[in-house]
Design a protein around this nucleic acid. Structure first.
Lengths: 349, 349
DNA sequence: TAACGGCGCTAAAGCGCTTTAGTCGGCGCC
DNA sequence: GGCGCCGACTAAAGCGCTTTAGCGCCGTTA
């Protein structure tokens, strides 16, 4: 198992394998990088030497020559602790990681306080040639990041956005269509007064979801009330209470995230409301959390792991200079009906 | 905001700032690395030039010179998708990240299939000088990783272990003591027949927990039945059903993880059992999931985020050659009693 | 006054790889 | 038969930084 003994072990360099194969380092480099200028015979001889000596590229040396760093970065601007709570992140990171590691590209993770710190990180990474590209989350209205990234020449892929082409490619899932189907589901169950615990209003995707719900509401004759909340469960709980306190108490509540939904369900339980007998609940994000709730929650299902893979694949293409569409379509979340939504109370089936 | 215009922007190198400050590159390097051989005057002049030109070190060049890569690695050997489910991981990673990024050290994440693939990754990282050190999880009995890591000279810190000094430093939380206090809690409530849905038996910490529970049981007169399960909720559910099917049905069940506990609770609910009226449930891992359950579950609480910070700090010390104790003590998880545990049914309070 | 030593600094080599600019020999062509 | 061309290969420079060796100067010491 151990490499052949002998000289006090020192990592073999391409000079070593060049000597071993009786060629120049240049030839080795060419052979390793599949470049022309080496005969098939020589190439096999070189690769044999590589295998025999157990050579591995020194990434630092490679990166120094202006090459790839074989690393993709992800900077998350959220309170560090929420990372551990939101299944979305963990799933996304798993997916990113899975796709990247298939190509032996590493994922670099960083959590920062705000967008300005995030931009600093990008600048540092670009300057240090630490990452070949980055994934950008939570696009905001008038977000400075895409333009800045273009300016500093750091390849980037946006997750989300509004589906319109921008300065950097975006992976886009149609939240609008998804939210519409949720609204239709509730309308079909006879609900009219629907509460909506939204996400951070500044986020483009949150805004899109709210808009979609209101659009669908107008069309279907629903009375939608959106109350924004941030990632915290406290805000989601407070928003739920606010909705319950309204004159026209909603008979159904839609939550923008699974964590918010769970917090909301707790409030509803404390208020003595039965699901779905007294009130229906749906979550926009599906996850383990939502499935494990009692009753399991109706939610918009999407494969976040797969989404991560898709995003990672897009970054890889971009980094390699392969053509990448301005907007990469991700599957639209699909409605999964579970026990938390039912017919509006007081109406015969 | 933008750097002063002029030459078609090119990253300033140490040569540029040397020219700008009127000294040699060597002097600049010395100044930047706080080495003697530069007068205070010159040093300030150099640092001023650095600031003015906005110089940033090129990590690749640094690493090439045999220096740090400023990166710490974490390889997780689990099915990639479970990563997104277990709050423990996400929290741990957040904590690691938080501590590392304070020192501008990056976290490299990789998920692999098995321990042999994990070792391959370590070998690659060591060969490529990609990471300065690694964090190792889920130690198993006769685990080859510590010795191998020592052999390849890659600094490593173990999370968990059994509290005895080994070839590499370990951060150790006393699961034994924690599990003991859980057992005492159940005994105090009058439970005698206690089920235990364990973790992966090969893991040292799972084994320790099981041992602790059985030890405490022997002392307190409990009848403990351990059924092992892996990370999957299916197995946890099956284990729960197995426990319910026993002649002497347990009046309380202890779960090794939060995810397992949630799956178990679902089974219990389906069986029409009321918590804690009919049966008590406790989870060894605390988390958001556990708190959001109905009723919220009694659990052993520890701050996993903080644990991550502690581990990261230990790796950093190790990498820098600072003295690190063989065993770094992490806080013992503390019992948090919630609504899921109550007096044994059929016994007067 | 000469020898010595230390300080402040520089020149130059080297880390492992890529890349540019060749060199050399053989082939086809007019 | 000389010319140009092409394929296979090499020499050498260069990426940005660290480090080793060494140089000149000044103050100290005998």
């Amino acid at each position: 198992m151990t490499s052949s003994a002998g000289h006090p072990s020192r990592r073999p360099t391409i000079a070593d394998i060049a000597a071993h194969a009786g060629v120049s380092p240049t030839a080795v480099s060419f052979a390793l990088n599949d470049r022309p200028g080496v005969s098939a015979r020589t190439r096999t001889r070189i690769l044999a030497a590589v295998a025999e000596l157990g050579w591995r590229p020194n990434v630092a040396a490679r990166a120094l020559g202006g090459r790839r760093a074989d690393t993709v970065g992800l900077v998350v601007t959220r309170p560090a602790r929420t990372l551990g709570v939101e299944p979305f992140f963990a799933q996304l990171v798993s997916g990113l990681q899975a796709r990247l590691s298939a190509d032996l590209v590493a994922l670099q993770l960083l959590v920062v306080e705000d967008v300005s710190a995030e931009l600093d990180v990008y600048r540092r990474w670009a300057a240090e040639r630490r990452t070949d590209g980055v994934v950008v989350l939570d696009l905001e209205r008038d977000d400075p990041r895409p333009d800045e990234l273009v300016r500093m020449g750091l390849p980037a892929v946006l997750l989300s956005g509004d589906g319109t082409p921008g300065p950097v490619p975006a992976v886009f899932a149609d939240d609008h269509a998804a939210m519409t189907s949720l609204a239709e589901h509730l309308a079909a169950l006879g609900h009219v007064h629907v509460g909506h615990v939204g996400g951070v209003p500044a986020y483009v995707h949150s805004a899109r979801r709210a808009t979609a719900l209101h659009d669908a509401g107008a069309r279907l004759g629903l009375d939608i009330t959106t109350v924004p909340a941030d990632f915290s469960q406290d805000e989601a709980a407070a928003a739920t209470r606010a909705l319950l306190a309204r004159d026209e108490r909603p008979t159904a509540i839609v939550y923008d995230s699974d964590v918010a939904a769970l917090a909301g369900v707790t409030v509803l339980a404390e208020a003595g409301l039965d699901l779905p007998g007294d009130i229906s609940v749906a979550s926009f994000d599906d996850s383990e959390l939502v499935r494990l709730a009692h009753p399991p929650l109706t939610a918009m299902t999407r494969d976040t792991f797969e989404l991560g893979e898709l995003v990672a694949g897009t970054v890889l293409s971009l980094v390699r200079g392969e053509p990448v569409p301005d907007v990469v379509g991700a599957p639209t979340p699909v409605l999964t009906v579970r026990g938390s939504t039912g017919r509006v109370p007081g109406v015969a089936a």
